[in-house]
Design a protein around this nucleic acid. Structure first.
Ligand SMILES: [Mn+2]
Ligand SMILES: [Mn+2]
Length: 568
DNA sequence: AGTGAACAAG
DNA sequence: TTCACACTATCAA
DNA sequence: GATAGTGTGTCTCTTGTTCACTCC
């Protein structure tokens, strides 16, 4: 295995082909770290790319970075490349680009401008007597009618055949799949793109740098990369509206030893089930939910069974689920389902843990405050906020932010598999259920700062040193110094510990559902309160109820305020 | 001619 | 290439 | 009260260009 770490040149801001250096860096990185995961075709691409003239490399990367696979030559105009037609020649020879590819009518309509489409289809549009102001969609409808009139199969033709008078050329990239695969192997996901490099270089997004172990990789085997790509493809086709049955037959088998990919697969199955339910195909939806396994899908499945009148089966499965619980949200769903099912089956009402009602009150406000303040939360904040009792609209940002600042080093601890490239917002295993367990001692140490009073300095110190760096728990724009120091002055360490402990129970899920407002009450007891604002017609969401329940049980001052608008 | 969405690019 | 929250409609007890 | 579905602002930043669409 090559031991040389790929490097990026330092002074890329002067280099007009900076994007090519980024791309080459990824190729080198993948070749160095993932050589065993590459197949013949990827090696062929990497080697072939290296043999291209630099202008051709640059043009290819420009195309890869842009949207879609089809490009008009007239839109490939780059000062640092020059004559694109000439730069294309080696790309076409290498099979990376096709000249004048076969395209369908929809692709043609996406490539040509409306005046060009009028020219292209002048005769048929004239015969149809189409209005001059017709939109592109209208033109497409008309031409589609002509195209579909004869045979059912929609024709694919070259641009030069669709529009013989064209003066432009169309080219098509063929290497998008291999480039996506390489991008995935580098980033460990497909939502980060080639432009992440330049955003980081310009300092628009700043990342905490973590010592990457040489053995830190997103993928351990090629099968996992294939699985990720397959799931991604299926989800794209789901969004395109392809039939659920067809997609379901292509769902790959579950990953045995990769919980991360198993979870992605389950989420896709859950979405397939939701779509099937929307389409009214209940048996198919039940099937998808069943395959998706425990969690949200299990609840949806039980509710569907209930709606089908299959009370006994639903009840049996609900008890089974309760025996192997999967998260508080699922538990909450079961606690609503079981009494209903028991009633239908004329069984005794099941024992439920007592639910505590959060303290609630009604606040009357002039109706025009909604417009003046912009939102109901801000209207309440402005109504109660005074200089000696300041209130802030923080939602989840304050508590998670304090947590992120206190536990900064834990979040960015260089555990194996957590960090593998320099553009990560947070550890890759943040959503895994062993995230906390793997860092238990580190979290214990960080939270111990709450006991000896040193947490205040830790938080303020991280605020100073890390300001602006991406952190999945910290939203810098909210954490003004004034808010931070008020929070540290007014929220007792014991309360912080309590709330942080619930965050640690399920950091990914419990980051949300915290109340809208915090009001600081310096010199009073308690010295702050949390307020969830509810406009008329709004009601507590499940995650908000779970947080309120926890806060109430631990005697943290929290209230739900129902606003009523007063019309004068 | 003006507006706004989409895209490209650094 | 979401995610978190609000809002609305409908059904049932 | 429960559930399902939709809407909204956010969307890694900011700027400039192109184009579609609409209005006059
Ligand atoms: Mn809120
Ligand atoms: Mn609220």
């Amino acid at each position: 295995m090559p031991a040389v770490a790929p490097t990026l040149p330092d002074d890329l801001r002067e280099d007009p082909r900076y994007y090519l250096r980024h791309f080459q860096f990824v190729l080198d990185w993948v070749a160095a770290h993932h050589d065993s995961l590459l197949a013949e075709s990827e090696w062929k691409f990497i080697v072939g790319f290296g043999e291209l003239p630099e202008v051709s490399q640059a043009l290819l990367v420009r195309m890869v970075s842009r949207k879609g696979e089809l490009f008009r030559l007239s839109r490939l105009d780059y000062a640092e490349i020059g004559d694109s037609d000439r730069a294309l020649v080696p790309l076409v020879e290498a099979g990376m680009v096709i000249r004048d590819p076969l395209i369908g009518l929809d692709e043609l309509f996406a490539q040509l401008r409306v005046p060009e489409l009028r020219q292209c289809f002048a005769e048929r549009l004239a015969a149809h007597g189409i209005a001059k102001s017709a939109t592109r969609q209208r033109l497409l409808d008309v031409i589609q009618e002509y195209e579909e009139a004869g045979d059912a199969e929609p024709q694919r033709r070259r641009l030069s055949h669709w529009w013989t008078e064209t003066t432009d050329q169309l080219v098509q990239l063929t290497v998008m799949p291999v480039c996506d695969r390489l991008r995935l192997m580098f980033f460990g996901n497909l939502h980060q793109t080639w432009s992440d490099f330049v955003l980081a270089e310009l300092g628009l997004v700043r990342y905490q740098q973590v010592d990457l172990g040489e053995l830190s990789h997103a993928f351990q085997c090629r099968g996992d990369v294939d699985l990720y790509l397959a799931l991604h493809d299926l989800r794209g086709r789901l969004d395109e509206g392809e039939s659920i049955e067809a997609l379901l037959t292509e769902i790959p088998p579950p990953a045995q030893d990769n919980p991360w990919l198993a979870e992605r697969r389950a989420r896709l199955l859950y979405r397939l089930g939701q779509q099937a339910q929307r389409d009214g195909d209940i048996p198919l939806a039940l099937h998808c939910y069943g395959l998706a396994g425990p969690g949200e899908a299990r609840i949806r499945r039980l509710r569907l069974l209930e709606r089908q009148g299959e009370y006994a089966e639903a009840h049996r499965l609900a008890l089974e689920a309760q025996a192997s619980p999967c998260g508080e949200a699922e538990q909450q769903g079961l606690e609503r389902l079981l009494p209903r099912l028991a009633r239908k089956l004329e069984l005794p009402r099941p024992e439920l843990p007592p639910t505590r009602q959060p303290r609630a009150r009604v606040l009357e406000l002039p109706a025009d405050h909604l417009v003046i303040c912009g939102s109901v939360e801000l209207a309440v904040r402005d109504a109660i906020s005074h200089s000696d009792r300041p209130a802030w609209y923080v939602e989840n940002g304050l508590i998670t932010g304090l947590f992120g600042l206190l536990c900064w080093e834990v979040v960015f601890a260089p555990l194996p598999g957590a960090f593998f490239h320099p553009f990560q917002h947070g550890p890759a295993d943040l959503r895994r259920d062993d995230f906390v367990a793997r860092r238990r001692r580190l979290f214990d140490t960080a939270l111990a700062r709450l006991d000896d009073g040193s947490y205040r300095d830790v938080i303020l110190d991280h605020r100073q040193r890390c300001a602006g760096l991406a952190n999945p728990f910290v939203h810098w724009e909210l954490l003004e110094p004034e808010l931070l120091s008020l929070a540290l002055d007014c929220i007792p360490a014991m309360d912080l510990r309590c709330m942080f402990q619930r965050l640690l129970l399920d950091p990914a899920v419990n980051r949300s559902g915290l109340p809208d407002l915090v009001q600081f009450l310096p010199g009073e007891r308690p010295s702050y309160r949390l307020i969830e604002v509810k406009a008329p017609g709004d009601r507590l969401q499940d995650n908000q109820r779970r947080w309120l329940d926890w806060l109430g049980r631990h005697h943290i001052s929290v209230e739900v305020w129902h606003v009523e608008w007063r019309h004068d």
